[in-house]
């Protein structure tokens, strides 16, 4: 039997610190109205510089889980998050966690590209300014580095003061990624970031994902596109009916899934 052994060839420095998880969940579950269980017993770890795909059929808790990680679920009334979410060495699923600080280091990108109705520059500087950075030079620096990291700089550097809505769908999504990167996050959560985009734009987003993972950021992405999960992720977790059925290296999950249900889903023999 031939083995697929070679790892993704990213920077060696990133490789070295890869094993230490930046974010981990212990027995995380989500309930609505105390009784409706949307998710239960999720134990996953996310390392720096690693891309993790969350795959599975619709309504199986992938997005719900993703929204736990930056406590976005707290914005939904009657939604309870159980279990421990350990970020940076401490449990963040506590009532006195500073949401606003947390969400700066755990960024989020959404399904539909949602830049603010502002100029490209303002889209990026907006949040840093709200968080107290006023120096013009510093802000310009942030704009450039974030756009470079999101692989958008070359395309927009001459029209930073144009509306973000003058950009194409793929560019808007990369602008949203850049906006998140401006906060210097350690983790970036992505909720089906390509499902509203055409194939070319999708590939450009995937390149961007590879690039930011290369910067040492842990990327967690929900996707309905199994091929996409195969293309971009180091680890894959398969969600079914609110539980994680299988989690492991993407190569292993895709070439030799341990669970029959994973096999059925990946090969399209689901249900």
């Amino acid at each position: 039997m031939m083995q697929i052994t070679e790892r993704d060839t990213r920077g060696a420095a990133v490789e070295a610190e890869m094993r230490e998880p930046v974010l981990a969940t212990h027995d995380v579950g989500v309930r609505y109205d105390e009784t409706k269980v949307a998710l239960s017993g999720v134990n996953l770890e996310f390392a720096a510089g690693e891309v993790t795909s969350l795959i599975g059929p619709s309504g199986c808790g992938k997005s719900t889980f993703l929204r736990c990680l930056n406590l976005m679920n707290r914005e939904i009334p009657h939604c309870h998050i159980d279990g421990e979410i350990v970020y940076d060495g401490h449990n963040i699923n506590t009532p006195d966690e500073n949401l606003y600080e947390l969400r700066q280091s755990i960024g989020m990108v959404f399904q539909i590209p949602n830049p603010f109705r502002k100029s490209i520059r303002d889209n990026i500087t907006f949040a840093p300014r709200c968080h107290g950075i006023k120096d013009k030079k510093r802000l310009d620096e942030i704009v450039e580095t974030s756009l470079v990291k999101a692989a958008l700089w070359d395309e927009v550097k001459d029209k930073l003061d144009k509306s973000a809505y003058a950009l194409s769908g793929g560019q808007r999504q990369r602008l949203c990624i850049a906006r998140t990167l401006a906060m210097n996050p350690k983790v970036v959560l992505m909720d089906e970031p390509c499902s509203a985009l055409d194939p070319i734009a999708t590939f450009s987003i995937e390149d961007t994902i590879g690039q930011i993972a290369g910067e040492g950021i842990s990327v967690i992405i929900v996707t309905h596109n199994i091929e996409q999960a195969a293309r971009i992720s180091d680890k894959t977790a398969y969600f079914l009916l609110g539980e994680v059925v299988e989690w492991g290296d993407t190569d292993a999950v895709f070439s030799d899934p341990k669970d029959k249900r994973t096999q059925d889903y990946l090969t399209g023999r689901f249900g």
């Binding site: 976005m72 960024g107 989020m108 959404f110 603010f116 949040a127 709200c130 906006r179 906060m183």
Partner: peptide, 20 residues
């Protein structure tokens, strides 16, 4: 999605409302 974007950037509800 605009609301979510603001909150996900670590802005408060008030900042999101006023600025976005």
């Amino acid at each position: 999605t605009q609301r979510d974007a603001g909150l996900a950037l670590g802005l408060t509800r008030w900042e999101t409302t006023i600025h976005i």
